[in-house]
């Protein structure tokens, strides 16, 4: 059995399993998001080693979680006007705005880790260590976030695909909160400023925290080194195989370009008073509920199971959401209504 081959970024620890390290560099959104699916086909079949990939999308796009509905989540006018592609990933989680100021790390493996949510924390700790080495203290907020204090800087998700486990994540170099809010389909335009404000409160970025961006390669090298230092795996640099490239062109791209894939029907829902449920970051979210009057709405700002604030919104499209005063009976009634609904935990 041969040990890891030093490649300038991975610590040489012969006892560790050897993964491939593939740097896709700056590439199209579809390649940055979905090339891992082709890699999974070959990792799952045992034809190539487990693989660590790095990528940066060269232009913006919207990514849907595997079970999410395009019709429910995304404002179709926003993506059509901006010609923003919408890509349904095979991993879980919510709707996200992704752009060239985000750095992706992706793991594809089949025999180290059982798969499932337990793998997220295990593989995210080294990413947090890598960031610390570059001067930014991140911590893992289970199940899948990296945070600075309470503010999210990295979303992560996983899935089983073609016999392999896939974990995908990204660090926000810069956070485009405007587009993060604007891409969402909302039942009333008066909700959007609230979404922006909550994103400003709970989402941060490397530039927000440090005032600068580290070199992309420094980040990728630090993450690679951290996986080795954590005793998980060493790496050897590699290019994608011809078979992986061919599979990507022939099958992965074709699947993602099919309208039937992007526009899977929504999952059935239990009848509920919740008109829209927006997870902002981790336990922080927004619930839009029917109000007491016809076409009125109540908006609950929720931290876990606690209603931090509330708004009332009338039916007019020009209406501005009215904050519900603290200690008011209106806010108390909203909190009571939310108590019977699963919060964001």
């Amino acid at each position: 059995m041969s040990g890891p081959v030093p490649d300038g970024s991975s610590p040489f620890r012969p006892e560790l399993p050897v993964w491939r390290r593939i740097d896709l560099g700056r590439c199209s959104p579809l390649r940055a998001q979905t090339f891992v699916e082709s890699v999974a086909q070959f990792v799952g079949a045992g034809e190539v080693p487990n693989t660590l990939l790095f990528a940066r999308p060269d232009s913006p796009y919207v990514s849907l979680g595997f079970h999410q509905s395009f019709a429910e989540e995304v404002d179709p006018q926003f993506v059509a006007r901006r010609r923003i592609p919408v890509i349904r990933r095979v991993e879980g989680g919510g709707t996200t705005w992704l752009d060239s100021d985000q750095w992706f790390y992706q793991l594809v493996y089949r025999d180290e880790g059982a798969g499932g949510p337990g793998d997220l924390a295990r593989f995210l700790r080294p990413v947090a260590e890598a960031a610390r080495g570059l001067g930014l203290t991140l911590t893992v907020r289970p199940p899948s976030d990296l945070v600075v204090g309470e503010r999210k800087i990295s979303g992560n998700a996983g899935g089983d695909w073609d016999g392999a486990h896939i974990l995908v994540g990204g660090i926000l170099g810069r956070a485009d909160r405007q587009n993060m809010a604007d891409l969402l389909r909302l039942p009333h335009p008066g909700i959007r400023p609230i979404v922006r404000a909550e994103l400003a409160r709970w989402v941060t970025s490397w530039v927000d925290e440090t005032g600068h961006l580290p070199e992309w390669t420094a980040f990728a090298d630090a993450v690679t080194t951290a996986f080795g230092a954590a005793g998980l795996f060493g790496t050897r640099s590699a290019d994608p195989s011809e078979a992986e490239e061919a599979h990507f062109r022939r099958e992965t791209v074709a699947r993602h370009q099919a309208t039937t894939w992007r526009e899977l029907p929504p999952l059935p829902r239990t009848a509920s008073s919740v008109e829209r449920r927006l997870r902002v970051a981790g336990p922080h979210g927004i619930l839009v509920l029917a109000g007491p009057g016809s076409e009125e709405r109540r908006i609950a700002i929720v931290d876990g199971a606690v209603v931090r604030a509330g708004y009332a919104l009338g039916p007019s499209l020009e209406a501005v959401a009215r904050p519900l005063p603290r200690e008011s009976s209106e806010l108390a009634e909203l909190a009571t209504a939310v108590r019977s609904i699963t919060g964001f935990d």
Binding site: E91, G92, P143, G159, D160, W161
Partner: peptide, 24 residues
């Protein structure tokens, strides 16, 4: 398919056959 804590898993049919009912 099913999802928990942002992880998606898939279930395969254990035999050739026709699904006659699902659990709503």
């Amino acid at each position: 398919s099913m999802e928990s804590e942002k992880w998606v898993g898939h279930l395969a049919l254990p035999v050739d056959g026709t699904v006659v009912e699902t659990n709503p």
